[in-house]
């Protein structure tokens, strides 16, 4: 079997396994949505009726089979807690998380790689040491704590000290309902709301990435072809920009794919603190409410994102490294 086909089959199996595992874990948990939805004074008959209505009275295997056949027919079910189709909930939350993630990932990559390369150029010097200390600190900080710290500075201290409006940022939500959403003012409002969440995700991601980029650039810089390039008369900028960066590309693509789970985890906290109505919040609330259809829908999306990212990374490596093309 050709290798990319085998990878594809493996990905599908992995996807099925992750989804099944989630289903089993969620259904093994004590208590279910019926206990949480119904008032404690309800009679046992009412609880039983609700459980039947939600389909929770069937065995786990029966529920699993029914859910799978539903999904294969393109139906993700209806949320227990909200009464809305899961598909609509996902369609509303996913773009928010994806946009937040895409912007943060791009900035993370640009900032992390530039910082790492810059540190590698000055490796061992004072600039490298200061940058290393800074990245280690940011990397060690919990995402939710950084978010709270930024809110303290850019919302409360800023408004108390009367800072200019450009650095006085909203602490919650993703848009102001008093502002017209169409046109320039809407965009400006969105950017202001997105500034702090994006800053947190970017800072944490870039701090981690720059450490790898630095190590890999230093290792590449010791290679023989760098000496050859220098001997040919290439100046420092050419060596770093063309030779080292070009050869670091496969490593960087792997790092990009590997940073995705971190971004997913980060988005759960960041959406929690900043009250963004994205996938992270949806997932958290569905776990809390034992809202199985939403939980499973969110898991499907998350698992698909991670698996597709890994698969794209494989393709990307082959594209970036001609030696591996065959």
């Amino acid at each position: 079997m050709p290798s990319h086909l085998r990878r594809g089959v493996e990905s599908v199996l992995l996807f099925g396994f992750v989804v099944t595992l989630t289903f089993v874990l969620a259904h093994l948990a004590p208590g279910d949505a019926a206990d949480l939805l119904i008032p404690p004074t309800a009679s046992p008959e009412d609880v039983a009726r609700l459980r039947t209505a939600l389909g929770l009275d069937a065995s786990m295997l029966a529920q699993y089979v029914r859910w799978i056949s539903q999904v294969l027919h393109g139906d993700l079910g209806v949320s227990f807690a909200l009464g809305e189709p899961v598909r609509d909930l996902l369609a509303r939350s996913l773009p928010i998380t994806l946009a937040l993630g895409a912007v943060s990932l791009t900035l993370t990559f640009v900032l992390g790689v530039s910082l790492g390369m810059w540190q590698a150029r000055h490796a061992g010097g004072w600039r490298d040491r200061i940058a290393s200390a800074a990245t280690i600190t940011v990397y060690a900080a919990p995402t939710f704590w950084l978010s709270l710290a930024l809110v303290a500075v850019f919302t409360y201290i800023a408004s108390r000290a009367g800072w200019p409006e450009a650095v006085r940022l909203p602490a919650m939500g993703w848009r102001d309902y008093r502002v017209e959403h169409a046109g320039l003012s809407g965009i400006r409002d969105l950017v202001r709301h997105a500034a702090l969440p994006v800053l947190v995700l970017t800072a944490v991601g870039a701090a981690g990435l720059s450490r790898y980029a630095r190590a890999s650039a230093i290792a590449l810089h010791r290679e023989g072809w760098v000496r050859t390039a220098r001997a040919k008369g290439a100046d420092t900028r050419q060596v770093w920009g063309r030779h080292v960066l070009a050869n670091a590309r496969p490593t960087l693509i792997v790092l990009l794919a590997l940073s995705l789970p971190g971004l997913v985890a980060g988005s759960v906290f960041v959406e929690g603190v900043f009250a963004w109505p994205g996938m992270g919040r949806l997932l958290l609330s569905s776990i809390g409410a034992r809202d199985y259809p939403v939980l499973m829908g969110a898991t499907l999306v998350y698992a698909a994102m991670v698996i597709v990212a890994n698969w794209l990374a494989d393709l990307g490596i082959a594209w970036a490294d001609p030696r591996r093309r065959s």
Partner: peptide, 19 residues
């Protein structure tokens, strides 16, 4: 091991803690 590695750890943690 690879399967567990492919799931974001936080999601796995959340699910298990909810259990």
């Amino acid at each position: 091991a690879d399967t567990f590695l492919a799931i974001p750890r936080l999601i796995l943690l959340l699910l298990c803690v909810a259990l």
